[in-house]
Every structure is written in structure tokens, then in C-alpha cells.
Amino acid sequence: MRRPPVAVALALPLLGAASDPLAGRIAGPAENCITVSRTNGPSIVDAHTILYTEGAGRRVWKTGPIGACPSLEPLSTMVVEIYGGQLCRNDRFRVVTPGLSIPSAYCRFSAFTPYTRATTR
């Protein structure tokens, strides 16, 4: 009897939901700055998406690079320059590819869009 295909078919929808960190969240108006002391991150999702999580995950801030940012990909390390406790649009960061020690050229953050969990009634 072949039961593994049934188990795999049940697991595939779960994998799809887990791959979108913003699923079930509602976007708010973009802001120019976020307070870094209240966030965890950065988490690189792909070449265009960087996430910072606030608190216990109640709010997620989505940003990305302005233009292209070579080497920005999951598992890379971001070196972020923070001045005054806030991270703002146009602030600079660099990316270090795993296995290398030389960072990329400077990249700049775009605006920060808050995503909050949708409330159910």
C-alpha cells in the first residue's frame, strides 16, 4: 500500500503558506523610518524584499533596496549602518555573500511598509 504520496499531498499546502511571511497580514501606509530597538531582523526574503519583525511578530516591516543590490539573497549577511537609533529610507547597507569576506557595494533602503495581522471577528 502506498501512503507516502497522500502524506506528501497534505504537506504541500502547508509549505506554500509558510513560504509567504506576509500571508494573512494587511499593509499600512509606508513610512520613512522605523525604530531599530523594537525590531528583529533583517531577514532577507529575496533580491527585492527585506523584513524586520516588531515585537512578538504582531507587525512586520517590509522594505527592499532602491534599484538593484548585487548579492542580496537569502542566507547573505547584511551590514547595516544605523545612526540615531532609527533605520530610514535611503540609509545604506552592504551585503556579504556566504563564504566571502568582502562586502558588496553600498545599497540603499526603500520606504518601510508595515504589515499587521488581519483581525477576525
Score class of each variant (00 low, 15 high):
119 T>I: 12
102 I>D: 01
118 A>E: 10
1 M>N: 05
29 P>W: 11
92 R>C: 05
111 A>W: 04
109 F>H: 14
56 A>F: 05
4 P>K: 14
3 R>N: 08
101 S>I: 09
52 Y>L: 15
12 L>F: 04
28 G>F: 10
81 E>Y: 13
89 R>L: 05
4 P>F: 14
3 R>D: 07
28 G>N: 09
120 T>A: 10
63 T>R: 00
33 C>M: 08
119 T>F: 11
1 M>Q: 06
20 D>S: 14
25 R>A: 10
101 S>A: 07
25 R>I: 06
100 L>C: 01
110 S>N: 15
107 C>R: 04
76 S>L: 02
81 E>P: 03
89 R>T: 03
9 A>M: 15
40 N>E: 11
76 S>E: 05
27 A>K: 13
88 C>N: 04
12 L>Q: 05
119 T>V: 14
48 H>D: 09
36 V>Y: 03
5 P>G: 03
73 E>L: 09
85 G>A: 08
111 A>H: 00
46 D>M: 04
52 Y>G: 05
40 N>G: 12
53 T>G: 00
88 C>Q: 07
3 R>C: 06
112 F>R: 08
6 V>I: 15
108 R>T: 12
19 S>Y: 04
52 Y>P: 06
46 D>K: 01
113 T>W: 08
6 V>G: 06
20 D>F: 09
70 P>T: 07
113 T>G: 07
91 D>W: 09
83 Y>H: 10
27 A>D: 13
55 G>N: 00
71 S>E: 03
27 A>L: 14
116 T>Q: 10
